[in-house]
Simulated scan of single mutants.
Amino acid sequence: MKTYDTFIPNFLEMQGKIERESFRFIADNCKIWHKGNCIADIDSYFEIEAAVNSFNGKIEVTFDNSEISEYIIDNFSFAEISLMNDRVLWSNNILNGGAGCDEYEPSIMSLFYYKGKLSRIYLHVYKPVEVLIELVSNQEGRIEDVENPLKKIAESLQERNEKQFDLSNITFVSNSHQRYENGIPVKGLQKSKRSIKIEENINGCEGYSIKGGDGYIVTIFNLEGNHPLWGNNIQMTPKPMRIISKSSEKIVLRGYRVEAMTPFGWTDFNGADYGFSIFIKNGEIEYCMLHMYDRNVDIKYFK
């Protein structure tokens, strides 16, 4: 049983800034995993030095890899940071699967803490072959043999939050909305009716090459008439999204890369350019926000 310290999920700092900390880690065991199989198990001394660059926020890592140099380079860096339940996750271009990383360069680094002390590191390398490098320090004993009460608390809170608010079929009617560009309100408060529909993806989504059972579909309708060009009242066409964080006060969804049908056939569509946040008060939706990340535009929908 894993019993590491837990964190409130915060994917790519969407819920606020995450403190970036330098560290030094000494492992006494290294395992190399490939396709679920352990292909190397080495009891030795492995040292990682990681320093946060005060100018650009990147964490720059130096790794003593003399015994496993056939799997990983000895210097690399990460620009993105997230909190993911039981780990601090550093990454590069995670929304695009780590695209742009060189051979033997890890695109993800996961840090696991036990009682506030760094105890395990995962390094994910995808080129030229996919391997997971697991580095463990057993100075505090075998972590998996100790039960962590924080995990039970986190599971209890998650279960409570899931029961409090059901996303499977929601319609939110808004009477006004405010547009923000680069975080600045523009054009003033717009008095116009919109309907936001969020429904569970049961049978896929028309126009996208996705299967049912994966996430949710978000659609926005104009309740004041049909659009003059496409002849219906759809303000934002259906967008497949997945939950990336959920609490009793806020639920955040974000799109993902899929294939979409166009007049020229199926083409790649970066759904991660779109996101949607639901703000909850006393068990009811207080307001919602549509995020268009590629344009740095947000639209806040009020009741």
Rank of each mutant, 00 (worst) to 15 (best):
E80R: 01
A40V: 05
V52N: 11
A99K: 11
Y208R: 10
I220S: 01
M289N: 05
M236K: 09
E47M: 04
E181W: 11
P228V: 08
F276I: 11
K250N: 12
H177Q: 10
M1A: 14
I81Q: 07
K163F: 07
D43H: 09
S195T: 03
N96D: 14
E162L: 12
Y293R: 11
K152T: 14
I280P: 10
L118N: 03
I68Q: 07
I32M: 03
E147T: 12
Y122F: 12
W266R: 10
N169Q: 08
Y293F: 15
L95S: 08
Q158H: 05
E147L: 12
P185N: 01
Y122G: 02
I42S: 08
N282H: 06
Y256R: 05
Y45V: 09
A40P: 05
I26D: 14
Q139I: 07
L253A: 03
P240R: 08
V258A: 11
D43N: 08
I143W: 02
L132D: 10
D43E: 07
S192D: 01
Y208G: 12
I48A: 08
K300T: 00
W230R: 01
F264G: 02
L150M: 15
K31L: 13
P263C: 03
G57W: 06
N37Q: 10
L12S: 02
Y104A: 00
H34S: 10
P9M: 09
E105I: 00
I251F: 01
N10Q: 08
I94Q: 10
D41S: 04
Y216M: 13
I280Q: 11
Q235A: 15
K250F: 10
V173Y: 15
G97H: 04
I244H: 06
Y293C: 05
D166F: 08
A27N: 05
M261T: 15
N53R: 01
V129E: 15
V52G: 11
I196M: 07
V297I: 15
